[in-house]
Write a protein that binds this DNA or RNA. Sequence first.
DNA 1: CTGCTCATGTAATCGGTTACATGATTGT
DNA 2: ACAATCATGTAACCGATTACATGAGCAG
Lengths: 176, 176
Amino acid sequence: MALSHAILVTLLDKPQTGYDLGKRFDQTVGFFWRASHQQIYSELHKMANCGWVSGQAVEQSARPNRIVYEITEAGRQTVQAWAREDSPAPSVKEELLVKLFALGTVDKKVMVERIEHRLEEHRGRLVHYREVMAKHYPKPDKLTANRRGRYLGLRMGILSEETGIRWCEEALLALS
Amino acid sequence: MALSHAILVTLLDKPQTGYDLGKRFDQTVGFFWRASHQQIYSELHKMANCGWVSGQAVEQSARPNRIVYEITEAGRQTVQAWAREDSPAPSVKEELLVKLFALGTVDKKVMVERIEHRLEEHRGRLVHYREVMAKHYPKPDKLTANRRGRYLGLRMGILSEETGIRWCEEALLALS
DNA sequence: CTGCTCATGTAATCGGTTACATGATTGT
DNA sequence: ACAATCATGTAACCGATTACATGAGCAG
């Protein structure tokens, strides 16, 4: 289990529906853990069976009904125990880097284009992260524990993008 | 398909057995794409059916027989076509960062220990990468296309570890 | 009138992990 | 004596992706 924990952590904030979780995932935890809506819904059902969350249907007119999930005491304890465990090294799947290993056999022009494209993605995300930083964490020295965790996550995002940009620039230089 | 391509790329170098591939994966492409031996064997069977590789059994006395796989012309074309495609953004699963999002509810001391442990892992890998760099790429300006690709992969590894170290140090400071 | 947002789900399939199996040889 | 290395595989399971389905309301 692993996605389940990411969901529990998000539910610590406040009760949410599967739909809400899907959207928030894309903005916050999503950088470190991606999940599709199907996965989230099925995981919520499983967790409700385990008693880690409890769902409450909310009737709506002219809209599909919502099911708001709340973390239970058992769920909180699960999070605590999980946080105490050692985290496995992050799993990486970097297709672009695998392609680089075939640089002898592959058209160099195409690789340059791919790296340029990657560079643009990094730049776009970096701009976005910096905006979030300026807006939500203008003074990062005095923060509650909760917000400090999120701040550090954002810092990781910014450092990663900067490194990605530096690597792309270096790679483009080496291939020219 | 994706692991199949990582295998094909490795076979571009020279024909190899599933066992060899498993070991080389841990050293080279393995940083960007991890795979267990079971996965590699079953993938090789599939690829042999597709005609991307051809296997040749080698009898051995007092050792299990080896099956040496070679990339075929069809396999080479598959690599070419795949390299031309756009690479999806790398998928990330960073459990430690997810835990940070629960910093309000979780024991801070435990988190500090986890980050210290992560820091040591980064430092260890960085030392190793720098040794490989000094040994195999002392003069990185004049390289064949093939070796330049691998060099850039190694550079990515070094930059990532350095960034990881910087982030861990920053996080430990923020949590003290 | 086209397409997007809200909101939940099923089914099929693929990719990956874990556990189990064999059996001689070499190193500590 | 015990563990590791070489070398290949099967089977069960879990996790993730892709495709498909529904259906009202609202904006361009």
